[in-house]
């Protein structure tokens, strides 16, 4: 591992300033992904600025009836939070479907959002990868790409975002609170992650020195009727092939409102807005759920090894919505 300096800032502003001063510095929180990538030689920062003790590690009520999750809240604590379990169950379920008990204790909310892809070529410094080394080529497009993207990919990168937690947050209309050199900004979580386009090295829209300090969950009545479903190759402790987070409000058999997000299919958690639009005002039944999923997946472009993700996504969208309409 390349040598680096380690520093712990006094406060958030100090951490931001420390990063701004050092172009090749990185924030360190739980370290479960970053330390691993440093061992692999994929990440090679000159300096680590430890932020784990700087941001809140609590879940707090917001005046608007929503919740603010401090960036340092461990994944395990967030999953077990009573308010999250009751009011945003899909988020608890997503967290519990990810990683292992040990990792969830170390990993933080902010760090989970910023974890990097698990594309095997990105993690292997002996292979070309546009995300790791722009312009070197993508080994996955013609390689083993069973785990790769079917939506929103580019000729430069077909990697997927690995987070379960983020998929639920996309479905729940979360906001991200960020502190940077120019102060604080708060924006919809959908604007955090990017599609690869011709800059696959950039996972997010954050500028160097911007630090996630919190995630806000807005008050959302239908979130209490939400669910996360994940399909993977083992029963536990594996990344998603495809996952879905959904929330549903049905009245007199008609879809009043719905939220759907997909994991394992794109470079970012995929908010299925086309499917949502197709469903609002329509009868809540299996045929309509399948039809809405088909609309969302119309643009899907499978690679050699991952065409199975299209029917898989279609089926788990429909199954999850069906479960939610029956549970209500």
């Amino acid at each position: 591992m390349k040598p680096y300096s380690y520093q712990r800032a006094e406060d958030v502003d100090g951490a931001v300033a420390a990063l701004v001063e050092q172009p090749n510095a990185k924030f360190l929180a739980g370290g479960t992904n970053l330390v691993d990538l440093m061992k692999l030689g994929v990440e090679e920062p000159d300096a680590l600025v430890d932020v784990r003790r700087l941001t809140s590690d609590h879940v707090e009520d917001l005046d608007d009836g929503g919740l603010r999750i401090g960036a340092a809240v461990p994944n395990s604590v967030l999953a077990a939070d009573r308010k999250i379990r009751t009011r945003y169950p899909a988020l608890s379920q997503a967290l519990l479907a990810g990683a292992s008990g040990q990792l969830r204790n170390l990993a933080t909310t902010g760090g989970n959002l910023l974890q990097r892809t698990r594309c095997v070529y990105w993690q292997d410094v002996t292979t070309p990868c546009n995300k790791r080394e722009p312009g070197s080529g993508c080994s996955a497009i013609e390689g083993h790409n069973k785990n790769h993207a079917i939506l929103g990919a580019s000729e430069h990168c077909v990697a997927t975002h690995p987070s379960d937690m983020a998929v639920a947050m996309y479905a729940l209309d979360a906001f991200v609170v960020v502190h940077g050199p120019d102060g604080e900004r708060r924006f919809p979580i959908e604007e955090l992650h990017r599609l690869p386009g011709d800059e696959p090295q950039r996972d997010t829209t954050l500028e160097h020195g911007e630090l996630i300090t919190a995630v806000d969950l807005p008050p959302l009545d239908l979130a209490a009727n939400s669910k996360y479903r994940k399909v993977r190759e083992r029963a536990s402790y594996a990344f998603a092939l495809v996952s879905v987070a959904a929330a549903l409000d049905v009245e007199d058999g008609v879809v009043r409102d719905v939220r759907i997000a997909l994991g394992g299919v794109a470079h970012k958690p995929w908010r299925a807005t086309k499917a949502e639009e197709a469903l609002r005002g329509e009868p809540a039944n299996e045929a309509n759920f399948h039809a809405a999923a088909d609309i969302e997946l119309e643009d899907a472009q499978p690679l050699r090894d991952n065409a199975f993700k299209i029917p898989l996504a279609r089926n788990i969208i429909a199954r999850t919505l069906l479960d939610l309409s029956e549970e209500r």
């Binding site: 360190l28 479960t32 330390v35 784990r52």
Partner: peptide, 13 residues
């Protein structure tokens, strides 16, 4: 008091 993977935790942190 909480279980964790010590291989991914930096001693200095």
């Amino acid at each position: 008091g909480r279980r964790a993977n010590s291989c991914l935790a930096l001693a200095v942190a």
